[in-house]
Every structure is written in C-alpha cells, then in structure tokens.
Simulated assay, not measured.
Amino acid sequence: MDWKKLSTTKITQVYKSVFLSQCYICNAKTQNTLCKSCHEGFPTNLNHCQRCKRPTHKASVLCGQCQTNRPAYTICIAPYRFEGIIKTLIHSIKFNQGTHYIRPLTYLLSEHLIESYSSESWPEQILYVPSHPSRIKERGFCQTKAMTIQLTKNLTELLGEKCPTLPKNNPLKKVKNTQAQHSLSRKERLKSPQSSYQLDGPIAKHIALFDDVMTTGSTIENCTKLLLKAGAERVDIWVIARTPDKEY
C-alpha cells in the first residue's frame, strides 16, 4: 500500500470537508462554494446583446454599438452584471486582499463555460488581461492572473485534457501604466491608448482571453486585435461580469 499517497488523499478529504463544504459568503453548510440563497442573490446577466453581452432592458439581437462596430472577438461569455454582490466581491479581491472570493467566482464561471461550450470547440490556450508591473507592486498581486490560475484548476478537474493550457509566462504584457479604468468615464476609457499592451511569446490559434470585468470593451478589443494580428485565428472572451450602461 502506498501510505504516502493514502495520507495525501486523506488530508485532501479532511481539508475539503472542513474548509470547502461551507458557503464563502454566509458560512452555511453546502456542497458547493456558495449556498443556494447567496447564489440566488447574484445579478445574472439574462438580457444582453448577443455579441458583446452588454446588459439591456430586454433581450436583443445586437446592441447599437455592435451593429456599428462589430467586435473583433468571436464570442463573449459574461454570466453576471457588475453590480450588487458581484461588484462587492470583485472590489474586495482587487482592493481589500479578499482573494478567498476568487474560488467561488471562478467556480461559477467554470460552470457557465461548460454549458456554453457544450456544442463549441474549446480554446487551445487561455491568456489573461494583465495589470502593469507598477500596479501589481502597489496591489501586491495581479488579480486576473490569480483568477486565471484558479479557473484553469477548476476546468482541468471538469475537462481533463480538453482544458485550455495556461502558459507559464503570459505572453500578453501591459507596457503603459494607464490610469485605473474604474476611475475613468466611458468617454475617457474609449480614448485610452491602444498601444498599452504588447505580445512577448507564442500564442495558439484559438485563444480564450480572460478578464474579471468588461466595461466599455475597449481594453478587450485592443488586446483581441493584437492577438489576431500576431496570428491567432479566433479569440473568445471570458469575463465574470459585464458593466451595465448608466442608462440601464
């Protein structure tokens, strides 16, 4: 008998039963990372543009912006609206060291991805929109990197070999330290420099590009065009939440 393997297995079982069998928000006993009551309070992005997933008052084929300027990416997956408890949790991760909320948020995204790709081919590679080094130093970590690592772990358990690979070094780099996006108006975001990112490393033909939140979509669009110009044939966007317009 492999006692070392048995010991590791038992320790994992105990860890999961003690720490992973309760809701990350209210601490109630649950089989998942969130209990049913807390999950039902999440602002689901039900009515949205079919292309960019911009929240709308009612389901629409394409929003006006997508009809005028069709996004460069193929599909966008954004299961939640960036408001309410979702906004609180993501802000806690980014600004208050609430990294323990990464697990439940990426778990929920994983479930949504499994459903979305039931009849689609999975990307070969997953990349993330990075922060500038000075911002990472200020914050202490890159939240999109931490989220992508956990998301990849979740998908590996669910998909096995079908899971997109996560490069050891993200080839997408932010080279200009632009002003924090959350502090800018929509007009200012759209005017942000388009050359803030560069590629340094090989990329796959079919890429999933992850970001925590998508607001105007300008950052996502710039990164997508950069990837396509470098040889990618398809880019899918994965975000946890999509910001509603002010008039929503």
Rank of each mutant, 00 (worst) to 15 (best):
P71L: 13
C49Q: 05
K94C: 11
L151N: 03
T106I: 03
H132Q: 13
I114Q: 07
C49V: 01
H57S: 06
Q65K: 13
I126R: 04
Q67V: 07
A146V: 05
R54A: 04
E124G: 04
Q97K: 14
C49I: 02
K87T: 11
I149H: 14
L113M: 06
I77N: 05
H57Y: 05
E138I: 00
S121F: 07
Q50S: 09
L105R: 01
S118D: 14
S134I: 10
I86R: 01
A146H: 05
C49N: 00
T148Q: 03
E115H: 13
G84H: 05
E138Q: 15
C49Y: 06
C66S: 10
L62F: 11
R139Y: 04
A72Q: 06
T56A: 14
P79M: 14
I126G: 01
C66M: 10
R54F: 07
P79H: 08
A146E: 12
R70C: 12
V129W: 04
E115G: 01
A72V: 03
K53A: 15
L108A: 12
C76T: 13
Y80S: 06
R51H: 13
E120N: 02
T74W: 11
L113H: 02
P133Y: 08
C142G: 11
Q50E: 11
T44V: 15
Q65C: 08
S119D: 12
Y73G: 06
S60P: 01
Y107V: 00
V61L: 09
V61A: 10
K145P: 05
Q150N: 08
Q125H: 05
C63A: 09
Y101D: 02
H132Y: 09
P133N: 15
C142K: 03
K58D: 06
Y73P: 00
I93G: 00
G41M: 12
L109K: 01
T106Y: 02
R51M: 11
C52M: 10
T88Q: 07
C76A: 15
S110H: 03
Y73S: 06
A146W: 03
C52Y: 05
T44D: 14
F141V: 09
P133S: 08
S121E: 14
G41T: 05
C76F: 02
I126S: 01
R81Y: 04
G84P: 03
T68G: 06
H39S: 14
G98F: 07
F141H: 08
R135E: 09
I136F: 10
P71I: 11
S92H: 10
I126A: 00
C66V: 01
E138S: 12
P123M: 09
T74G: 07
S119V: 12
Q97P: 04
Q67H: 13
P133G: 13
G84Q: 07
G64T: 07
T44N: 11
S134P: 00
E115S: 15
R70N: 07
S110L: 02
P123F: 09
E115F: 15
E124S: 09
A59E: 12
P104R: 07
F42W: 06
Q50T: 10
C63M: 08
N47Q: 11
I75Q: 13
V61I: 15
S119K: 12
E120Y: 13
N47D: 03
P123A: 14
K137F: 06
R103M: 09
P43Y: 14
R135H: 07
H91G: 00
L89V: 00
I86K: 02
P43N: 15
L62H: 06
S131L: 15
R54P: 01
